[in-house]
Write a protein that binds this DNA or RNA. Structure first.
Lengths: 247, 247
DNA sequence: CGAAGGTTTGAAAGGCATCAATTCCTGTGG
DNA sequence: CCACAGGAATTGATGCCTTTCAAACCTTCG
């Protein structure tokens, strides 16, 4: 058995939304990726920095984060294996946010110039990668709706639904169970809540048996029930096959 | 005097972020645009629809909106002249949100196939338009931060800072004054607040003289002061020249 | 002038934040 | 193997921010 491609989760993610020819997969493989590991809590892309490469998550969990003047923080995305975390930096002068490892994770960097070269040689690749940033934006819209109009427990439930689906796409769930290595402080910074209220919201989901959460391991016993509770509609994830209940 | 191009605001918006050659501008002009007017409150792109064209705002104000099961709503973006409102529909199967006119507005539609033809003929045009969707996403991230971590009055102040800058780019501000034709209910649905609290937040900004708001006309007497209050940092708008205080 | 929608105000209730303390883990060193 | 330290999770109490319900006022327009 030859080594698993570092792009395996990325290709799973792409193919869940689009067909990707073997040639196109080869083009992606052929890019001059540079691997690097990051430890948990390491901020590997700084806010305000000007980057010349983009970063794909190979394994582990990462997040986009903005720091406010008073030290408070807001996370604007959770990134899992196969996510091209800062592909948009290709188009931006300065990063408007930082990117941090939630768990230890393996990253693959590729220079902007290599990407541009690929687009020159195969223009349709730009459309393929453009699409990933568009889906990323759709996820952000969903977060806006959750922040604006859902109660804290429902918002948390919605987040778990989203993660469960996204992780099932890259085959990182088993029987509704998946890893989610975050502290409650980090969770609070995703939900825009205090840590205390986050804790109480989580307890409510546990009490109603919508969610089981031990350590960093989350189980959703009845996905349909949780999705209904959270008003979760997976349309925005733009999957070819909407999984009724991911396993 | 020949007619003003329907793309004038779009080109202003593009050129504030990037250089656009006359040839590229001509390519955009040459697209088979179809004009259409929408009345205020008209929902001209439906949630869940599958579209085959994308829509640029020529004049007026539009918004992206998501409806919840209980009738509540959340707006996820405000669109002004020059915004390619649903360019991302080029990549999405179904719209995860609706697009509605906030004021009467003029729209220009172009088919996805015409866009794809243009990309085929001039691949770099894809990068140019990709960039607009990336900036759009950056704005959404800023909304996430505001929703999660700003108090209601500061959030409102931040929104007005953003609008003022974006409108100044398309030359729609004069001495810190601009049109913003929304009801307080619509404002509330942007901020994720109740209409009552939105009203009180607005009154707070008025009382501190950070904002003057009559009818649909907003004036920011001291932009720097408001920006400081709202922790507004324009980096995310990705402008070549950060306007210190837009006029 | 009346109707209708938008804005403003008041009062009461609830959700969420804050402060502070306690308990539970988990990894480390004796 | 057990005690200890430090971070994370949990709990309690209090107060503020925001919502909800209701009503009054204001503006526009047929």
């Amino acid at each position: 058995m030859i080594r698993e491609s570092i792009l395996a989760p990325f290709l799973l993610s792409l193919r869940a939304r689009d067909s990707v020819s073997p040639e196109d997969a080869a083009r992606l493989e052929a890019l001059p990726w540079r691997l690097r590991d990051a430890k948990a809590d390491e901020e590997f892309i700084l806010e305000g920095s000007q980057t010349h490469d983009s970063c794909l998550v190979v394994s582990g969990y990462a997040t986009r984060i903005r720091h406010l003047s008073d030290g408070r923080r807001q996370l604007t995305a959770v990134h899992i294996a196969g996510d091209f975390v800062d592909l948009h930096s290709l188009h931006l002068n300065r990063m408007d946010h930082a990117v941090t490892a939630l768990s230890s994770c393996r990253l693959a960097f590729v220079s902007h110039s290599a990407l541009l070269d690929m687009f020159e040689a195969a223009p349709h690749m730009a459309l393929l990668l453009w699409k990933t940033t568009v889906i990323d934006a759709a996820i952000q819209r969903a977060w806006i709706v959750c922040l604006g109009r859902l109660s804290a427990p429902k918002h948390l439930a919605h987040l778990l639904c989203e993660l469960c689906i996204r992780l099932s796409v890259i085959e990182q769930t088993r029987n509704g169970t998946f890893d989610f290595p975050v502290t409650q402080q980090e969770l609070a910074d995703m939900l825009g809540l205090s840590i205390v209220h986050t804790n109480r919201s989580l307890q409510e989901l546990r009490a109603t048996e919508l969610v089981v959460w031990n350590r960093n391991r989350v189980t959703i016993p009845d996905f349909a029930k949780l999705a209904d509770y959270a008003e979760f509609d997976p349309t925005y994830l733009n999957l070819k096959n909407i999984p009724a209940g991911p396993n």
